[in-house]
Write a protein that binds this DNA or RNA. Structure first.
Lengths: 183, 183
DNA sequence: GCGCCCATGTAACTAGTTACATGATTCA
DNA sequence: TGAATCATGTAACTAGTTACATGGGCGC
């Protein structure tokens, strides 16, 4: 069973809304899915070529005045099928690795002040993340040009997922911090 | 700036409670930190050797009757220092990759029934995870031999972190599911 | 006799990141 | 003049997983 390269589907997903260059895809990712998915150029360009070899996308070079030429990729029917098939497959189990929890677990010999600081940093980080999510949600809700966007709801709920997660961490931090008072 | 290999610190952390073989370390990981950290043999054995070269651990071969010999590793003062230094460093920022959210985001063209199934699977998964965490917490609280364990509190709070997270996801699923009714 | 546990390790592969390379245009 | 944006790509490296190899003991 060949290992599934998820980057492929991220790219196909982005192309499913319309033709893009590798550069455009990166921009789209950074705008919409950055809080749960990231891609970098060094990954995008080779994978696009691979998708072309497989017949999932086609490419066309588009000349531009005073700018480097773009390689614009378009998803094919084969690519759409592959994407839809993948969407129906169950989500693969992931192994989480939390450096934060690892540090906390091994801090039993450290001064409590250090433990408090660790937890407090975690709280602050998630507080900031939460605010960013809320701002993005507000932006989507208030921006008239997005009111008819086909992925609007999907976008909002993924942001909400992140927000709920951040809230859970904040709550945990607030409840856990008092356990390490003193010293 | 050399990339920090976190496996090293996971191993040092495990060794900080007492000498272990690679095999023992894997067992300890599976028992205590499995919900947020995993290591496999193919990673543990080479890293232990590297730690030995660096002087962070020493090893001794321990013969056993009717069993393969064990390589028992012991943390050195140098190793302890490295661990403590790492514990004080801020947690590195991680890039999350959520296949679930990626699929959800790209499901805007899929039938709603499929979206509901995706979310429902997520809910069930986290419901199960939550129950496992609660059972483990109960086990720790009820097991008299663990009442004096130096890491007991730390263990309980890391489990709680996972539980809060699972609860947040469950809540999100319950609120999000109705948005995709019909069809 | 089968499968699991103990115990250590290597080889091959997949995935992902950082740094490097190039070069024009636009804006402050 | 310097930074940012547009645009594509390669090389080298780090990290992590799966599969393979070995072999005895123990319980059902």
């Amino acid at each position: 069973m060949a290992k599934i390269n998820k980057t492929k589907f991220a790219l196909l997903g982005m192309l499913s809304t319309g033709p893009c260059s590798g550069y455009d895809i990166k921009k789209k990712c950074d705008h919409s899915v950055a809080h749960f998915w990231n891609e970098n150029y060094a990954h995008i360009y080779p994978v696009l070529k691979e998708l072309e070899r497989e017949g999932a996308v086609t490419s066309e070079s588009e000349k531009q005045e005073g700018r480097p030429a773009k390689n614009v990729y378009t998803i094919t029917d084969l690519g759409r099928e592959a994407l839809e098939k993948w969407l129906m497959e169950p989500v693969e189990q992931v192994r989480v690795r939390s450096e934060f929890l690892l540090k906390l677990f091994f801090s039993s010999n450290a001064p409590k002040q250090q433990v408090r600081q660790l937890i407090e940093s975690e709280r602050i980080k998630h507080q900031q993340v939460k605010e960013v999510f809320e701002q993005q949600q507000q932006m989507i809700l208030n921006e008239p040009s997005l009111s008819q966007h086909p992925r609007r709801t999907y976008w909002l709920v993924t942001l909400n997922y992140g927000k709920y997660n951040a809230e859970a961490v904040i709550k945990w931090c607030e409840e856990t911090l008092p356990l390490f008072e003193g010293e």
